[in-house]
Simulated scan of single mutants.
Amino acid sequence: MSKRVLAFDVYGTLIDTHGVIAELETALGERAAAFSQRWRDKQLEYSFRRGLMGAYTPFSACTREALEFTDRALGTGLSEGQKDRLMATYGRLPAFPDVAEALQRFSGAGVTCVAFSNGTREAVDGLLSQAGLRDYFDDIISVDEIKRFKPDPAVYSHLRDRMESEAQDTWLISSNPFDVIGARHAGLHAAWVRRSAEAPFDAWGGEPDVTVTDLLALSERLG
């Protein structure tokens, strides 16, 4: 009998990428939130662009390049030491408050859960470990293994290959619409974790199989 696999995106879904704001506030004060959002947007843009160019580099390099760009674009004049501290903070970002309990529910129900990320295995392992989440996952699957980025169809195919799962039994869980659309395009099921009530979904004509506001709600649907 086939077993359902839940593949959880990490950055923005399990881990709050805006958890870096506290460190930013020390240097930038009230400009911290705007800087954080611009940094995150540029980080993803760089991964998309590198994917299209066939110029892969680890996600941490995209993050650093995006930090450099945002500093220049906003004229914030961060020192190299401040940038190094921000990058270090990115390695110990906090989990969203609903995550641990939801993962515990899935684990108790015997659901196969994997972390599925643009980040390298080492980075994701460290991030989940410091957040107290690592033990809830059967494995970590990184795009670094095939040197592609989401939403390249090859990434979702790699997930299935690693898990030896059928498309109909494989679920992508993500707060990022581009990731949800990519998984659906590749034939997987997908749940969108709409962490902001103001967040729109892309008007591409397709919808997630499930939309929830947090992972606790998801555990009631799929646990």
Rank of each mutant, 00 (worst) to 15 (best):
R64V: 07
R85F: 03
A123K: 07
F106W: 02
Y156V: 03
E198V: 06
V155F: 04
G110S: 01
D214G: 09
P200N: 03
K147G: 07
K42V: 00
I141A: 01
R160S: 00
G54I: 09
R195S: 04
V212M: 08
L128Q: 12
A131I: 04
F178S: 15
A55V: 10
E45K: 05
G187P: 01
D161W: 11
A115R: 13
G132L: 11
R195I: 12
D138R: 14
L52F: 06
S129K: 15
E45H: 04
F178K: 10
T63E: 10
L218D: 01
D9K: 13
R184D: 05
V20S: 02
R38Y: 09
D84M: 08
D139S: 09
R194L: 06
T17G: 11
A217K: 07
E68V: 08
A199V: 08
F116D: 00
A100W: 00
Q168C: 15
E30F: 07
E164L: 12
H185W: 13
E30I: 11
A131S: 06
Q82P: 06
L74G: 06
M53N: 04
L218Y: 11
P151Q: 09
T112H: 15
G12R: 05
S175A: 15
V124H: 02
R221H: 01
R4M: 15
R49T: 09
R85M: 05
R4G: 13
D139E: 05
V143F: 00
D152S: 13
T76R: 00
Y46D: 10
S196W: 06
M1H: 07
A27H: 09
E101P: 04
R160Q: 02
T89I: 08
T57R: 15
T57V: 15
Y90M: 14
D214N: 12
A191I: 08
T120Y: 13
G126C: 10
R4C: 12
L172G: 09
L52K: 02
E80L: 14
L216P: 01
L103F: 13
G206T: 13
Q168F: 14
E166C: 01
M87T: 05
E207T: 02
P177W: 04
L93P: 00
L86K: 04
R50E: 03
L93W: 01
A7P: 01
Q37V: 10
D71S: 10
G77E: 04
D98H: 06
W39N: 01
T211D: 03
W204E: 09
Y56A: 08
S2H: 14
R92P: 05
R4F: 11
G126Y: 08
G19L: 12
T170M: 12
L24R: 03
A186I: 06
P151E: 05
G126H: 08
R40N: 06
R184P: 03
S219L: 05
L103M: 15
Y56P: 11
D98N: 04
S117V: 06
D202V: 13
T213P: 04
H189P: 08
R64Y: 14
A22Y: 10
R72P: 01
R148L: 12
W171P: 03
T76W: 00
Q37N: 10
D84E: 15
V210F: 10
G81D: 12
D161S: 14
P94E: 07
I146Q: 07
S142D: 06
T13S: 03
M163H: 07
P208H: 06
